[in-house]
Measured scan of single mutants.
Amino acid sequence: MLSDEDFKAVFGMTRSAFANLPLWKQQNLKKEKGLF
């Protein structure tokens, strides 16, 4: 599990902003970052 700081560094957004994205968009971002 990423820390909040690492999460923001990897995804360029906060966890709450990420959580507001549609599920497909979350999955695409995870795949792009190799976290899926």
Rank of each mutant, 00 (worst) to 15 (best):
M1D: 13
M1A: 12
M1G: 13
M1E: 14
M1Q: 12
M1N: 12
L2N: 06
L2C: 05
L2T: 06
L2E: 08
L2G: 05
L2D: 07
L2V: 06
L2Q: 06
S3W: 04
S3H: 04
S3M: 05
S3Q: 05
S3L: 05
S3R: 05
S3G: 07
S3V: 04
D4Y: 04
D4P: 05
D4H: 04
D4N: 05
E5N: 07
E5S: 08
E5L: 10
E5K: 10
E5Y: 09
D6L: 09
D6M: 11
D6V: 09
D6I: 09
D6R: 09
D6F: 10
F7A: 00
F7L: 02
F7H: 01
F7P: 00
F7E: 00
K8A: 14
K8M: 14
K8N: 11
K8V: 14
K8T: 09
K8L: 15
A9I: 12
A9L: 11
A9M: 12
A9D: 08
A9T: 13
A9K: 12
A9H: 12
A9E: 11
V10G: 01
V10S: 04
V10R: 06
V10Q: 07
V10N: 04
V10I: 14
V10W: 10
V10C: 07
V10T: 09
V10L: 15
V10P: 00
F11Q: 00
F11E: 01
F11I: 04
F11A: 01
G12T: 02
G12Q: 05
G12H: 05
G12A: 03
G12V: 00
G12W: 02
G12F: 02
G12N: 06
M13K: 01
M13H: 03
T14V: 04
T14A: 06
T14R: 01
T14E: 08
T14Y: 04
T14D: 12
R15T: 06
R15K: 15
R15I: 10
R15N: 04
R15E: 06
R15C: 07
S16L: 13
S16Y: 11
S16V: 13
S16T: 11
S16P: 08
S16W: 11
S16E: 15
S16D: 13
S16K: 12
S16F: 11
S16H: 12
S16R: 11
S16A: 14
S16N: 11
A17R: 05
A17T: 08
A17F: 05
A17I: 05
A17W: 03
A17H: 08
F18V: 00
F18T: 15
F18Q: 00
F18I: 01
A19M: 13
A19S: 10
A19K: 11
A19P: 01
A19H: 13
N20P: 01
N20E: 14
N20C: 15
N20A: 15
N20W: 04
N20L: 14
N20I: 09
N20T: 13
L21R: 00
L21I: 03
L21F: 03
L21Q: 02
P22N: 01
P22I: 02
P22C: 01
P22F: 02
P22K: 01
L23K: 09
L23F: 11
L23G: 10
L23W: 11
L23D: 07
W24G: 04
W24R: 04
W24V: 05
K25Y: 08
K25P: 02
K25T: 11
K25S: 05
Q26K: 03
Q26I: 02
Q26M: 02
Q26T: 01
Q27P: 01
Q27D: 13
Q27G: 05
Q27L: 14
Q27W: 11
Q27R: 13
Q27H: 13
Q27F: 10
Q27N: 14
N28W: 15
N28Q: 15
N28Y: 15
N28A: 15
N28D: 14
N28M: 15
L29Y: 05
L29G: 01
L29P: 01
L29V: 05
L29Q: 02
L29H: 03
L29T: 03
K30R: 13
K30E: 14
K30Q: 14
K31M: 12
K31Y: 12
K31N: 11
K31T: 11
K31F: 12
K31C: 08
K31Q: 11
E32W: 07
E32Q: 08
E32R: 08
E32T: 06
E32D: 09
K33L: 15
K33C: 07
K33H: 14
K33M: 13
K33F: 11
K33A: 15
K33Y: 10
K33G: 07
K33E: 04
K33N: 09
K33R: 07
G34W: 08
G34M: 09
G34E: 10
G34A: 08
G34H: 09
G34F: 09
L35C: 08
L35G: 09
L35E: 12
L35I: 13
L35H: 12
L35A: 07
L35M: 14
L35F: 15
L35N: 11
F36H: 11
F36E: 12
F36I: 14
F36G: 11
